[in-house]
Design a protein around this nucleic acid. Structure first.
Lengths: 223, 223
DNA sequence: CGCCTATTTGAGCGTCGTCAATCCAGGTGG
DNA sequence: CCACCTGGATTGACGACGCTCAAATAGGCG
């Protein structure tokens, strides 16, 4: 009988470490610490000195800039394969964001003190890490463009479009207030923007289920 | 007689590659291509496939999201030591930004195809690059927070504060329209915000010269 | 000295944020 | 399995901040 759990793990690893061979992944497993987390768990706080770099394996994590009361701004919503805790790479810095799990999930922790050695041992990790950080930078640049120069409805349309879809239907994976914050909007404004798109016949909304009726028009709107 | 040009170069390198030894820097010089650029020169365009990673040595570079006519948004204003062209690290991607020189200056070009080998040869380059990319991410996160949750006057005050000062005086290194765009403002709004700060007695402005009169009040304003 | 561009100033408007009340859904416990 | 209940979502009214358009002024470079 096959060990299904190990098999599943391998599939997860291969999709996360796209482009790395099985032996490279094996090295990776030896070189870093696997850690599970529970929904709602705080992985680190803003202002904290980080000693590890994180690689999300399963589940979702949000990076926020916290306010005294609640959260000021959702900076990123992370998916498996994303790298975070980059402040650990910058000597003398503290994290600008708080990281909190949105689901039960798991991640790698790579101790930065050992990173040089780890990278030497795991061929390809090197370029993989650089690539993932490049991706993070690109995402933030995109967000800056979006927040600065697109209207609320445009940002919402764009968000809807980039969600994975089955047929013409999408399910919002996060609370609307979380999505709103990620888009740089108030929850009220997100609500009104969605309503606008519904009235224009581009989508329909039922709770967290969204049907895309006119993808072309949505795309046109975003441009 | 000492070769002053070589001496100057060494100083530049040491301040850019902080933490790396002279021998490491020597390897770095062998491993990458040095390129000069002229003021106004376009280093790469938005949408371009990049094959090299860049390290700014001297001068300044702006990263912008271009519009059909002129520029839509200044995403970053780079100083010596900054790394850019990170899209080269992400296979199959094209640059989100256009890079243009604001001064005469120089930079390293590191061919990404050779990056694995280069990093193997230049010990420390590895962690140095990761650190610099971490810094880029942190800067973008800061900008996102700033644009989303701070008023025009606050952003301007913050910008003034973080400029290098001699005594109580600063010189704006870039055109005000460039700074405005970096701050996510229209030039008119920057002008009015500066005027506001002047009227409140916090600073005084003469062209591109700014005198800081009440640093404590400026800092309080930003918070 | 003169042109060209950057910056400033003014007036008016629109989008989105704020505050407050109501509606709804999903999770919990009986 | 259903009713409750709490927190999320929606809707409405209103105001402010910053954008847009337009014109005047200042400043830099030939």
């Amino acid at each position: 009988m096959v060990d299904t759990s190990a098999l599943q793990s391998l599939l997860v690893y291969q999709s996360v470490f796209k482009g790395m061979s099985k032996s490279q992944i094996a090295w990776m497993l030896q070189a870093s610490e696997l850690q599970d987390f529970k929904k709602g768990e705080v992985l680190f706080e803003r202002g904290q000195v980080l000693s590890d770099l994180f690689v999300l394996l399963t589940g979702h994590v949000k990076l926020t800039i916290p306010a005294n009361d609640g959260e000021r701004k959702v900076v990123a919503l992370l998916n498996p394969g994303d790298v975070f805790g980059e402040s650990s790479l910058v000597p003398g810095s503290t994290s600008l964001v708080k990281a909190q799990a949105l689901d039960n999930g798991s991640m790698f922790r790579i101790c930065v003190k050992d990173l040089g050695a780890t990278v030497d041992r795991v061929s390809g990790l090197n370029l993989w890490l650089l690539s993932r950080l490049g991706i993070r930078i690109r995402e933030h640049i995109h967000d800056i463009e979006s927040v600065t120069y697109k209207s609320a409805a445009q940002r919402v349309a764009e968000y809807v479009l980039q969600q994975p879809r089955q047929g013409d239907e999408t399910k919002l994976k996060f609370h609307k207030r979380t999505i709103a914050s990620k888009l740089g909007l108030q929850p009220e404004t997100l609500s009104r923007s969605l309503k606008q798109l519904v009235q224009d016949g581009l989508i329909s909304v039922k709770g967290s289920r969204i049907k895309v009726h006119d993808e072309a028009a949505l795309r046109a709107l975003v441009t």
